[in-house]
Amino acid sequence: MIGRMVRAVRLWFAPWRVREEGTTPDYRFSLANERTFLAWLRTALALLAGGIAVDQFLTDIGWGPRVAVAVLLLAGGATCAVRAVNHWVRSERAMRRGEDLPMSRFPAVLAVGTVVTAVVVIVAVAVG
């Protein structure tokens, strides 16, 4: 399992190795995969900016809830960025191999994390 993860991470930094597999897909599909990657990175940046904003500007909320929300947003942003590159590599490899695109639970996890963060903010605003 760890060996497989290490090989996957190596592909993040060596995209030419991805090109060694299978056949080159239609460029439109590779470009769509890249646009999806960039959309996930924009989401990651928004989460990071939100975490910083919560910590710096929501000073009326108690320290505990403020830090909890900021950390949730920052962790979500970091996770989203890692997930973006991992999904890009997995999708590119699948297209080159003629396989189905990889399935992911991450969008659901991100949505649930967003809801949890929103609930914490709602409770903190209502109480504080």
Score class of each variant (00 low, 15 high):
Glu92Tyr: 02
Gly98Val: 12
Pro25Arg: 00
Ala68Trp: 01
Val69Arg: 00
Met95Glu: 06
Gly3His: 11
Arg7His: 13
Arg28Pro: 00
Met1Leu: 12
Val71Thr: 13
Pro107Trp: 14
Gly3Asn: 14
Ala14Glu: 07
Ser91Glu: 15
Arg83Val: 08
Glu99Phe: 10
Gly76Asn: 07
Gly113Val: 12
Gly76Trp: 14
Glu20Ala: 13
Ala39Met: 04
Ala49Pro: 01
Ala8Cys: 03
Ile122Tyr: 08
Gly64Leu: 12
Ala118Asp: 03
Trp63Lys: 05
Gly113Asp: 10
Asp55Thr: 03
Trp88Cys: 03
Val109Arg: 07
Val120Met: 08
Trp16Glu: 15
Met95Thr: 07
Phe37Pro: 01
Ile122Pro: 00
Ala46Asn: 04
Thr24Val: 11
Arg10Phe: 11
Phe106Lys: 01
Phe57Val: 06
Ala32Asn: 03
Ser104Thr: 14
Ile122Asp: 11
Val119Phe: 07
Ala70Asn: 02
Thr23Ser: 11
Leu101Phe: 04
Thr24Ala: 13
Val6Pro: 02
Leu58Thr: 05
Val54Thr: 12
Val9Ile: 14
Glu34Lys: 00
Val116Leu: 15
Ala39Asn: 05
Arg83Asn: 14
Val9Pro: 02
Arg66Phe: 09
Val127Lys: 08
Met5Gly: 05
Ala124Arg: 04
Ile61Phe: 02
Trp63Ile: 12
Leu73Ala: 10
Leu58Trp: 04
Gly77Lys: 01
Val67Tyr: 03
Gly3Pro: 04
Glu21Cys: 04
Ala81Gly: 13
Val123Phe: 13
Ile52Trp: 05
Gly113Thr: 09
Trp40Ile: 00
